[in-house]
Design a protein around this nucleic acid. Structure first.
Length: 345
DNA sequence: GGTCCACCGGAAAGCTCGGTAC
DNA sequence: GTACCGAGCTTTCCGGTGGACC
């Protein structure tokens, strides 16, 4: 049934990006100075999750590389690479200048090495840049005349609010490309494209794709996840085509899978905290700390737990209800541990 | 209004780990 | 082998905030 698994992944970059013509043109024009040896302005891609920001950035840079093969491009997801050291290291890695770099190498040494890689331009995509904890990395990269930045985030106001004055003043003038949510028809055609490339002909109907698109509510990441989950389930059940029941079962499953990936990235103590909150539905801080201490042999201090909680709120795994005294915590959406169909992913 | 208490989060110090230099 | 360095994580300390109670 599945003929090309890669096409059904959210991070797959298609040969042609549909329904984003204006945004592609805007980004391409912004990066055009590279073709003449000039440095383009920093570009921001703003918009909600699943509207194609990352896909479009990677697609456009792919197009640029066809015109300018010597250009070097780096994609960095700031969820994973959120420190100055890691960001600089990833850029160095792409230039091949990362030999002998280790965790005790001073960050200034990384920067100096990057200064010496100025023989060819580098375009750095920083995805989820609002998750960057050390925004000095942006200051560093902006200082490098041969480095151009494409910064991806959800909301402009929140992103700039976390910059210090030095970074804010340098990036304020950048170009903005804003993305709206896909309409249902647009999402249906995106899913049709993926299905035609990734699945055997006729295994999923137009009506089923519309059901998936309706549920995804403009989020292509969710829509593609549901399509993948449905195809896998149909394969496992040995049926020749996707049924409506399979689609219905795949919808909650795909959402759960996205959250589960995040939960699995938690360290042991964070996971225990998450479990305590999930078990209680909603819990006050004092009860949460007490229950956590009972479940682990070597508990962390409450200050460290507060750091963990802040992190999990950032990850959209939990939410804090209320402020200061009287606050409580609860998990967001469904508990990923309860879904037995997680094997789909 | 004053006090107590629970809670948050910033700042700084301490600790651990992986690596280098001698 | 060991002293040292730097990054990342954890802990300690403490000020700020706001609800509960008198």
């Amino acid at each position: 049934m599945i003929v090309d698994e890669r096409v059904l992944r959210e991070d797959f970059v298609p040969g042609e990006v549909v329904h984003r013509h204006d945004e592609i043109t805007h980004l391409s024009e912004t990066l055009e100075p590279l073709l003449y040896g000039d440095r383009p302005e920093t570009t921001f891609l703003f918009g909600p999750t699943g509207v194609g920001k990352t896909c479009l950035a990677r697609y456009t840079l792919g197009q640029l590389r066809e015109q300018l093969p010597e250009i070097r491009t780096v994609y960095i997801n700031c969820w994973q690479e959120y420190t100055r050291f890691r960001v600089l290291y990833r850029v160095l890695e792409a230039t091949g200048a990362d030999i002998d770099i280790h965790r005790s190498t001073p960050k200034d040494e990384l920067f100096q090495r990057l200064v010496r890689t100025d023989d060819q331009p580098i375009v750095v995509i920083l995805d989820e840049v609002d998750q960057l904890e050390e925004t000095e990395a942006l200051y560093d990269l902006h200082r490098l005349r041969h480095v151009s930045l494409v910064l991806i985030a959800n909301r402009e106001e929140e992103l700039f609010a976390q910059f210090d004055d030095r970074v804010r003043s340098r990036l304020r003038a950048g170009t903005r490309v804003k993305f709206d949510r896909y309409g249902t028809d647009e999402l249906v055609s995106i899913l049709e494209e993926r299905a035609s490339q990734g699945l055997e002909p006729g295994v999923v109907t137009d009506a089923q794709l519309r059901t998936i698109a309706d549920d995804a509510a403009g989020d292509a990441r969710v829509g593609i996840g549901v399509l993948r989950s449905a195809a896998r389930r149909a394969t496992r059940e040995g049926v020749e085509s996707v049924t409506d029941d399979i689609v219905a079962a795949a919808i909650p499953n795909a959402r759960t899978a996205i959250r589960r990936e995040t939960v699995e990235g938690l360290i042991e103590h964070q996971r225990v905290l998450y479990d305590v909150i999930a078990d209680a539905d909603e819990i006050e801080p004092s009860d949460l700390y007490e229950e956590y201490e009972q479940r682990v042999d070597d508990p962390k201090t409450t200050r460290t737990l507060r750091n963990y909680l802040t992190k999990m709120i950032h990850y959209d795994l939990i939410e804090a209800v209320g402020q200061k005294r009287g606050r409580s915590y609860r998990v967001l959406e469904s508990d990923v541990r309860e879904n037995g169909d997680a094997a789909d992913e």
